[in-house]
Amino acid sequence: MILVQQMLVLFVLMGIGYFCGKKGFITDEFSKNLSWLVVNVATPAMILNAGMNYESSIRGKELLFGFGMALLVYAFLIAISFLVIPLLRIPDNDKNVYRVMTIFSNIGFMGLPILQAAYGSEAVLYGAIFQFPYNFLIYTYGIAAMKGGNALGSSEGLKRIINVGVISSLLAIVIYVSGIHMPVVIRTSARHLSNLAAPLSMMVIGQSMIHFKLRGIRGNIRLLAFSILKLVTFPILGMLLLSFFVKDEMLLHVCYIMLATPVGSMTAMVAQQYGGNYTLAAKGVALSTVLSVITIPLVSLLIF
């Protein structure tokens, strides 16, 4: 119920972003600047704020176990990505895009703000762990898959694995595990900045919806079927699998959000740079994002 309530709040914020976009108060250029703030300032601050939560009961071994579950989640998604192709009878020229869309979700821009809003800093600390395998895989396996390779690795883009999201996640975990007490000024600043992540990210997503054309999606039954599989079927299957290993309710909720978030925008960027169907990837991002506003709370009611 908490998740449903918070998703309604986030939906209202998205609606405000959509309204401001329609009225021209948030232009595309302004939206890009807000996105930069979310990715490079607000979200890292939110992750660091989670690491400075000294009252948390999560210990080092729980974080290590959480990292193991993050690896299991991505192993599950990679395996599932091969089943999607015959299941939906994907044309040969689109197979790579669907594989990458299956694996990589919007965990940073949408997942972490949802965790913060619904469950608080402890959930964000768990969620930050997912940043490590995500960044490694998107710049190695993701690029190889988009180009048609099957190897779990690619030398291209490796230097971009270390970015502000990974650095802030690593710092947060080091601060948390070591028990270092940061100065009050830093903690207060991080807390205030972290409060910007959810409203700004949702307003940016809302503004981007002004470009969503339903008639451009209407005839693509395959993409609609894929979005339902990704947002409903795969999270349910994944949670059934994880329930055999995970007894911590908080970690289960985190894993669900990581599985249930829509196709990540990085999918479209990788498709554009490495010869994939960029238009298909962009439509997948848009359609799954719109549907996720409904599916995330509804599926959670079925699971929890």
Rank of each mutant, 00 (worst) to 15 (best):
F132N: 01
Y134L: 05
N135I: 01
G108R: 08
A128V: 10
I138Q: 00
F109D: 02
I129M: 13
I143W: 03
F130A: 12
M146R: 05
F136M: 14
F109H: 10
A128D: 05
I129H: 06
F109C: 05
G127R: 14
G111F: 07
G127W: 10
M146N: 04
Q116Y: 14
G108S: 14
A128T: 11
A145Y: 03
S121L: 13
F130E: 02
L137N: 04
G127F: 10
K147T: 13
M146L: 06
F132K: 02
N150D: 07
M110H: 06
G148Y: 01
I138F: 00
G142L: 02
A118E: 04
I114W: 04
A118I: 04
F130P: 07
A144Q: 10
Q131C: 10
L115G: 03
G108N: 13
N135E: 11
L137F: 11
L125R: 06
A118V: 09
A123R: 05
N135C: 02
G108I: 08
P133V: 08
L115M: 13
Y119M: 12
M110D: 03
E122S: 15
Q131D: 12
I114Q: 07
Y139P: 01
I129K: 05
G127I: 09
G149W: 02
P133Y: 07
A118N: 06
L115N: 02
Y141H: 15
F132A: 12
V124N: 08
N150G: 14
L137M: 15
G127Y: 11
A117Q: 14
I138K: 00
